[in-house]
Amino acid sequence: MDERTAKLTLKNISKTFYDRQGEHPTIADVSFEVYDNEFLVILGPGLCGKTVLLNAVAGLERPTSGHVFLNGRELHGTDPTICMVFQKKAIFPWKTVMQNVEFGPKMRGVPKAERRKTAQKFIDLVGLQNFENSFPHELSGGMKQRVGIARAYANDPELLILDEPFGALDAQTRYSMQDEIIRIWKSEKKTIIFVTNNIEEALYLGDRIVLLSRQPASVKEIYSIGLPRPRDMLSADFLELREKISANMDITV
């Protein structure tokens, strides 16, 4: 039995959508735990239901059945201690980097001096110092994602969910951001759920990988990744795990 502390527990989560054409089951009886300070990766083929599952965790989508627990407390909607970073860069285009990052604390009524100090800490942490007064249209794609990550961390979340945040980036920027998110995670000791359909990315980042089936998504396997960090994508151990997971991953048709 794993004796680590469960930060998040999913029990028998299912989701079915209904329309004039009938029922559309998207998630089927998904159960797993996410441990405190863990970097957990959810891996699955495209359009298998990963985002719907994340939305259920974050309270943005009510599951048809099942339960979500955070620190042993059942959730029945959105929770301010859960933050999400999306693939689409959901930052305010009319606000500067500083204004975007301090937005959450501002909405909570944190005094200006305190929220500026917090925002500056995370702007520095993601490597955007000297860009505090820049607007999103003046930033690259990777820099915009850094703003989103800094904004999420400024809210001091219990759980940070990243929904394919690097999927729209070019390969070089994506590799760089993978290293950056690990560096930030090690620094801040937050529990992270990271979603991807890329096996190499999952293996490079995750403490464990929850492999989902094609839609309706169910848990096919949970892999504990014992590879030391930083990880070498060309090492024999990495390639062996990649082959093992690849052979078990459903192909979208």
Rank of each mutant, 00 (worst) to 15 (best):
N248R: 15
R183C: 01
Y153T: 00
P45G: 08
G77V: 08
G104T: 12
N248P: 00
R208A: 06
E243A: 10
L43A: 12
E114G: 00
V52T: 15
E33D: 15
Y35D: 11
R214N: 13
R242G: 11
V147K: 03
N37Y: 08
A56E: 10
L10W: 10
V195Q: 12
K244N: 14
M249Y: 00
D237C: 13
K121S: 02
L43I: 10
E38V: 07
G167K: 09
K189A: 11
E180S: 05
K112Q: 09
N71D: 15
F194D: 07
E74H: 05
G148V: 02
D79I: 00
K190F: 08
A58T: 10
T9I: 15
R73N: 14
Q215P: 03
T51V: 09
V253H: 14
V30E: 02
I13M: 12
D79T: 03
E132A: 13
S218W: 13
L212G: 04
N248H: 08
R146V: 00
Q129I: 01
G142R: 13
Y223T: 10
Q145W: 12
Y175G: 02
V219K: 10
R146S: 00
G109R: 09
Q178Y: 00
I245Y: 02
R62S: 11
V34W: 08
E240C: 07
V85P: 02
M143D: 08
K117G: 00
G59I: 06
I149H: 05
E102G: 01
E200S: 10
K88I: 06
G44V: 10
L205K: 03
E38K: 04
V210W: 11
E188C: 11
A217F: 11
I123Y: 01
E180K: 07
V126W: 05
N133I: 00
M1C: 04
I222H: 07
G59L: 02
